[in-house]
Design a protein around this nucleic acid. Structure first.
Lengths: 121, 121
DNA sequence: CCCACTGACTTGTTAATTGCAAGTAAGTGA
DNA sequence: TCACTTACTTGCAATTAACAAGTCAGTGGG
């Protein structure tokens, strides 16, 4: 079990929505996990296989953080053996515009970047 | 002078525009500084006065990072004494949509947040 | 001239996070 | 029984961030 993490509890630096959003998602990995879930990945091992090679303990930590914030939901999709799937909640799916604007900005301003073809659904 | 920082040089984790954007802006403070510049603040001391109370060494570090990435430009606006202003470059101003989508998401999903009235210009 | 004060940072130190390598535990398939 | 997969944990070393204090140029007042 991943140990208690202050960042799990709601500690807002200010009432600013940008600051509060960054309190939840302001790190190098969280939005990448969300990007992958948008891209259709659902399991822990699929998430680990992304090209950015997220360290496994960080992935575990981010998944609990995101589920604490109800951005992601973890549910078993089979028993024997138990296997879990991670899916975006409606709240999580509404992060789409943030991701989309990052894709636009990145493609336009960072040479060598290329967005993947959009997944339907 | 702030010492050399690996994060200043371009180290892309992947060709994904989201990952690359996060390589530059994926932390708790960078986008907050940019928010303030959008809000019309221009000097180091004004940036320090924001309600989130950014540590002074971090502010200095983020400003060099952002100027290295040509998101922010630093220029003296007076001599005797020398005083600097930090302004967004066109590239930096194009981060507006990212900030805007964070405001929307934050206001909708994080209770107790409230965006400031939009500054003209 | 001396002193207090401001703006813009820098330095030192401690605390918190990351990143990496390895290890664990349940279950399957050969 | 053995090797293999999924889904994590654990233990450290290495980075980063946070906090407090200090620096340095310049200004304005007495």
């Amino acid at each position: 079990m991943v140990k208690a993490d202050k960042s799990n509890i709601s500690t807002k630096r200010s009432i600013c929505p940008v600051a509060s959003t960054l309190d939840i998602l302001g790190d190098k990995w969280s939005l990448l996990v969300i990007r992958d879930l948008f891209a259709g990945k659902t399991t822990y091992s699929e998430l680990q296989k992304s090209p950015e090679k997220i360290p496994t303990n960080i992935l575990a930590n981010r998944l609990v953080r995101l589920t604490d914030h109800e951005i992601v939901e973890k549910k078993p999709y089979q028993t024997h053996p138990v296997r879990y799937e991670y899916i975006l909640t409606p709240k999580g799916r509404e992060l789409g515009p943030i991701l989309k604007s990052m894709v636009s900005w990145g493609e336009k301003h960072i040479p060598g970047t290329k967005a993947m073809s959009k997944k339907k659904r």
